[in-house]
């Protein structure tokens, strides 16, 4: 008889018979990592999943906003040649284009900032390097979003 032989109940030839009976049942073993009342509350939340979803949803909207923007600025009506203060004033006279540009600014900056956050997390190996690079990234992002928003809302066609 081979020593590696096992029976259907998982009892080897050494044991000979099951030590458990109806009166002496096998102990119930809980699955590892099962959440119980004693499991501490997760402190991380679902931020990474929200960020993952945001990249996809904002990406779809940005495809429309940015390709429309490129068509207007670089392709239609003489391309880049017609762009100037007067052209900007003409477009921002309409709330439609103000909202378009505002939405594009916020979504593109947050989408880009989250992308760079991922890249910093991937390639910066030292915790301190990550901290500083992300600090710089968040500062530049907040500054750019606020500046752009301020410019759209306070634009004055009669500045001169």
């Amino acid at each position: 008889m081979s020593t590696t032989e096992t029976t259907a109940s998982g009892i080897g030839p050494v044991e000979g018979a099951s030590v458990y009976t109806v009166d002496n049942p096998a102990p119930l073993i809980e699955p590892p990592r099962k959440r119980t009342k004693k499991t501490p509350k997760s402190t991380r939340g679902n931020f990474e999943m929200a960020a993952w979803l945001f990249m996809r949803l904002s990406g779809i909207v940005l495809v429309v906003l940015v390709i429309g923007h490129l068509l207007i600025q670089l392709v239609l009506d003489g391309g880049v040649s017609k762009i100037g203060f007067a052209f900007v004033a003409g477009r921002w006279a309409s709330p439609f284009w103000q909202v378009w540009d505002l939405l594009m600014l916020w979504l593109a900056m947050l989408h880009g900032a989250n992308g760079l956050r991922t890249i910093i997390n991937d390639y910066a190996e030292r915790a301190n390097t990550r901290l500083w690079l992300k600090g710089l990234l968040y500062t530049a992002t907040v500054f750019t979003i606020l500046l752009g928003t301020l410019v759209i809302f306070t634009f004055d066609p009669n500045i001169r």
Partner: peptide, 8 residues
């Protein structure tokens, strides 16, 4: 965004 801010 910086160059566009020059309209202000």
């Amino acid at each position: 965004v910086l160059d566009t801010a020059l309209v202000r």
